[in-house]
């Protein structure tokens, strides 16, 4: 058995990327096109390296020959039909193991959102069985739904931060909602904010932060409970490529610490470079499920 890092240790690794910092417009304006071109090239190279560093490392959770790992997510013949005969998912069967990192790709309307909503029990499957953490969501009582969601961290493209609350309050919110005591909140929140690299922004409001920083806050909020499952719906969709890398590294470390990460994304470069399991949806069906896939099927690429 590999020694499993505690979540905090994994997050403290030195490989953490700080935000690139403010763009220096004045500088850029003075440079020649050649220089700009060279710099862009250099940035691309660094990004590729960073992604490659996170690529397909086979952890204990992902060994293909692993003896029947425990399922984090299990879908059996799941179909979701919305009112008006709009089909969200068609007969989907798949298993995602504990600790896995999975990309969920596919064009808009292919069923990614339906998939995520089913896991959170925002909607119920029309037929078939959905299990999260070994519990069947079909038989899960409504009163138990909040408990389910406390065990799933969620990160979204639009961050979903509360605009009138500071970074601290936004993260503390997730704990307050669960009725945690103030002592616990006061201890945990600054710790996790430090881990995502925003210790100096703790009293800032979301609009005072960059997009990447806001996404770090939302990751901190999602992870403050150390949930076993982290669902990310295009977490880098609103961010520039370099900022995205920082976010990906953060999520990567969270995954390394044992949290299952399911990420819906359109970011082709990221998927191609990281070489993780890719589940491609098309019109509600699983079109492809590669252990170490790319954004599109290899033959096409």
């Amino acid at each position: 058995m590999l020694k499993r890092d505690s979540p905090s240790e994994a997050l403290r690794r030195p490989e953490r990327l700080e935000d690139p910092g403010p763009v220096q417009i004045a500088d850029t304006a003075l440079r020649s096109e050649d220089e700009l071109e060279r710099e862009a090239e250099e940035r691309r190279r660094r990004r590729a390296e960073a992604l490659a560093a996170m690529a397909g490392e086979t952890s204990e959770f992902q060994r293909p020959f692993a003896p029947r790992a425990e399922a984090m997510i299990l879908l059996e013949n799941v179909t979701k039909v919305y009112p008006g005969d709009v089909v969200g998912l068609r007969d989907v069967t798949l298993q995602i193991d504990k600790g896995e990192w999975v990309f969920l790709v596919g064009p808009s309307g292919s069923g990614k959102s339906t998939f995520i909503k089913l896991l959170l029990k925002e909607i119920d499957a029309t037929s078939g069985n959905v299990q999260v953490g070994g519990r069947s969501l079909r038989t899960l009582k409504r009163s138990q739904v909040p408990k389910l969601r406390r065990n799933i961290g969620c990160v979204f493209q639009d961050f979903k931060l509360l605009p009138t609350r500071t970074v601290y309050e936004n993260v503390a919110y997730a704990l307050e909602v669960q009725g945690q005591r103030q002592e616990v909140i006061k201890r945990k929140v600054p710790e996790i904010i430090g881990l995502v690299g925003l210790a100096d922004k703790i009293d800032k409001l979301p609009h005072e932060l960059s997009g990447g920083q806001q996404q770090r806050v939302s990751i901190a909020r999602a992870f403050v409970n150390h949930p076993p499952l982290l669902i990310c719906d295009e977490p880098t969709g609103n961010l520039d490529p370099e900022t995205s890398i920082g976010i990906m590294q953060l999520l990567y470390r969270i995954n390394r610490a044992g949290t299952t990460v399911l990420m819906a994304t359109h970011d082709r470069e990221m998927v191609d470079k990281m070489r993780r399991r890719v589940i491609a949806l098309e019109e509600g069906r699983v079109a492809r499920d590669d252990r170490r896939g790319g954004y599109v099927e290899e033959d096409e690429a």
């Binding site: 959170l120 409504r142 009163s143 909040p146 408990k147 389910l148 969601r149 406390r150 065990n151 969620c154 979903k160 931060l161 509360l162 605009p163 919110y173 997730a174 909602v177 669960q178 009725g179 909020r221």
Partner: peptide, 16 residues
């Protein structure tokens, strides 16, 4: 409504 959305997201009970 945004706050309510976030509350549900982070697992607030209905009464909360």
């Amino acid at each position: 409504r945004r706050e309510v959305e976030v509350q549900k997201l982070v697992g607030a009970t209905n009464w909360f």
